[in-house]
Simulated scan of single mutants.
Amino acid sequence: MKKIIPSLLLSILGLFTVQGQELKNSLLWEISGNGLTQSSYLYGTIHMTCDATLSEKVKQALDDTTLLVLELDMDDPSMQMGMMKGLYMKDGKTINDLVSEEDYKILEKFTLENIGMPLKMMKTFKPFFITAMLYPKLLGCPVQSYEAELMKVAHEQEEEVLGLETIEEQMSVFDDIPYEDQAIDLLRSAKDSLEYDKATFEKMLTLYENQDIEGMGKMMEEDKNLSTTKHKDKMLDNRNINWISKIEAFSKSQPTFFGVGAGHLSGENGVINLLRKAGYSIKPVK
């Protein structure tokens, strides 16, 4: 359990995005101007994939920078403990409080078959985390992570790895979104045995492979089956806004490679648009 939670948390936060102004198909963007003496780079990742091989242009951008900044400082030894503390619902809530007795039985059978754990052992978990434990089922292959590959390069280059937010800040998102809404998504997955989730994730992977960040935005905005769509301000917008001053500070200090979920790039409150509003030149790397 402890080993899989970090990548699952990023997966939850990385699967939701919004539509904004039109952007070219690219996952790697150069940050320059506004007083910067050297360029930094912004890279959109997907937190769970079958092949996380880094392209040559990404490797070059890593060579041209001296610091790696992810959503979280995944080198922080205290991160695991912070995640474990944030795993549970507040105020003594349990899954039993969120669903009917009939639906509880559906979830009980579903989680045992797909996660291999009795629901009673997870009944105090925030529903999003139970959903996230099912994500590897969507791939049908051993899970790879772009964050892990980026960190591997940073370690080889003896560069520091830092984060745009703390584990406490990230975990608080799942307290701000009503547990009842989280349970809706979990129950939907159980009732159709992940069929909808698998189809949705396959489509998203195709868009990602095509570097179509706008397409990902449209897809998620139109997906009314995800209750979290109505909470995009908490999932993305507020976090993006909070990141901008940190991105500026890191970039002014030294050339930095930023790796964040691709869902954070596009949209009116996407990182690209917010950095442009702050006066920076943001160009796709071809």
Rank of each mutant, 00 (worst) to 15 (best):
residue 60 Q to C: 03
residue 123 K to T: 09
residue 61 A to D: 05
residue 183 A to M: 14
residue 175 D to W: 02
residue 116 G to D: 05
residue 137 K to C: 03
residue 278 A to H: 03
residue 228 T to G: 12
residue 46 I to W: 01
residue 203 K to L: 13
residue 85 K to Y: 05
residue 273 N to Q: 15
residue 37 T to F: 07
residue 244 I to A: 05
residue 65 T to K: 02
residue 217 G to L: 08
residue 31 I to V: 10
residue 283 K to T: 10
residue 228 T to E: 10
residue 54 L to E: 04
residue 81 M to A: 15
residue 228 T to M: 15
residue 241 I to S: 03
residue 278 A to V: 02
residue 201 F to H: 04
residue 45 T to C: 09
residue 108 E to Q: 14
residue 118 P to Y: 02
residue 260 V to H: 03
residue 54 L to D: 06
residue 194 L to S: 06
residue 177 I to P: 00
residue 286 K to Q: 12
residue 230 K to R: 08
residue 286 K to C: 07
residue 48 M to F: 02
residue 161 V to W: 09
residue 241 I to K: 13
residue 176 D to R: 10
residue 230 K to S: 13
residue 245 S to D: 15
residue 242 N to M: 11
residue 7 S to C: 08
residue 189 S to I: 05
residue 139 L to S: 06
residue 61 A to P: 06
residue 269 N to G: 00
residue 38 Q to W: 01
residue 111 T to G: 05
residue 117 M to V: 14
residue 84 M to H: 00
residue 223 D to R: 00
residue 120 K to S: 10
residue 147 E to K: 13
residue 210 N to P: 00
residue 179 Y to R: 02
residue 260 V to I: 15
residue 283 K to N: 11
residue 60 Q to W: 07
residue 184 I to Y: 09
residue 209 E to I: 12
residue 153 V to K: 03
residue 215 G to I: 08
residue 197 D to E: 15
residue 42 L to H: 01
residue 75 D to R: 14
residue 212 D to Y: 05
residue 209 E to N: 12
residue 52 A to P: 01
residue 279 G to L: 07
residue 164 L to F: 07
residue 22 E to K: 14
residue 227 S to T: 11
residue 241 I to W: 02
residue 211 Q to P: 03
residue 258 F to S: 09
residue 101 E to T: 12
residue 219 M to L: 15
residue 115 I to N: 06
residue 280 Y to R: 11
residue 178 P to N: 04
residue 125 F to V: 03
residue 21 Q to I: 07
residue 82 G to Q: 14
residue 91 D to F: 13
residue 187 L to Y: 04
residue 178 P to C: 05
residue 20 G to V: 09
residue 211 Q to F: 03
residue 141 C to F: 04
residue 253 S to Q: 14
residue 3 K to L: 15
residue 162 L to N: 04
residue 179 Y to A: 09
residue 266 S to F: 03
residue 119 L to R: 06
residue 167 I to R: 00
residue 50 C to S: 13
